[in-house]
Amino acid sequence: MGDYFVLIISCIFVNNILLAQFLGNCPFFGTSKKMETAVGMAMAVIFVLVMAGVITWMIYHFLLVNLGLTYLRTIAFILVIASLVQFVEMFLKKSIPALYAGLGIFLPLITTNCAVFGACVINIDKEYSFMQALVASFSYAVGFGLALILFAGVRERILLARVPRPLQDTSIALVTAGIISLSFYAFKGMV
C-alpha cells in the first residue's frame, strides 16, 4: 500500500503533469480564463485519462507486445484515444445527458490534449503494472485538475489587477504559472 501512496503523491504533486512535466499546456492556458470552463475541462480530463490509461496499457501489453509491433505505439495510442473520446461523447449524449451538457465542448478538445497521450506513454515507459498504471493515470488526472483549477482562480483575480500593456493576457499568465509551478516544486523533497 505504501508504494501506491508514494506513487499518488509523486504523480499529483512532484511530477505534476502540467507544471513539472509540461504536458497539456494548451488547454491549461486556453480554458483557465474562467473558473467554470476550468472545472469542466478538469472533469473531462479525469474521466478520459483514466479510461485511456487503462485501455492503452492493455492494448500495448496484450496486443502490440505479443505481435512484436511495439514501434507502432504512437499511431495505435492516438487512434485509441481519438476513438475513445468519440465513443465517450456518443455514450454520454445518449445515456447521461446532464454530464454531457457539463463536459460538452471539452470532450473533443481532449483528443489533442498531450496530457492524456503523454500519461499513456509514461505509463508504458516507466513499465508500470496494471494497477500502478491505473493509479498513476488517476493521480495524473487529479494533478491536472488541481493545477488547472488553482490557476483559474488566480487568473480570475488577475483580471481585476492593472497589468502593464505588453505583459497582458498570455504573458502574465505564463509568469503566474511559473510562480504556481514554484509552489509545486516545494514537494520535490517529499518523494
Binding site: 507544471l19 513539472a20 505583459l167 498570455t170 504573458s171 502574465i172 505564463l174 511559473g178 510562480i179 509551478s181
Partner: peptide
C-alpha cells in the same frame, strides 16, 4: 528548472509584444 520555463517564456512574450 520547471518554474523558470514559464517565467522565461512569459518575459520573452512580453518583449515580443
Amino acid at each position: 528548472q520547471a518554474p523558470g520555463a514559464f517565467v522565461c517564456l512569459g518575459i520573452m512574450l512580453c518583449f515580443m509584444n
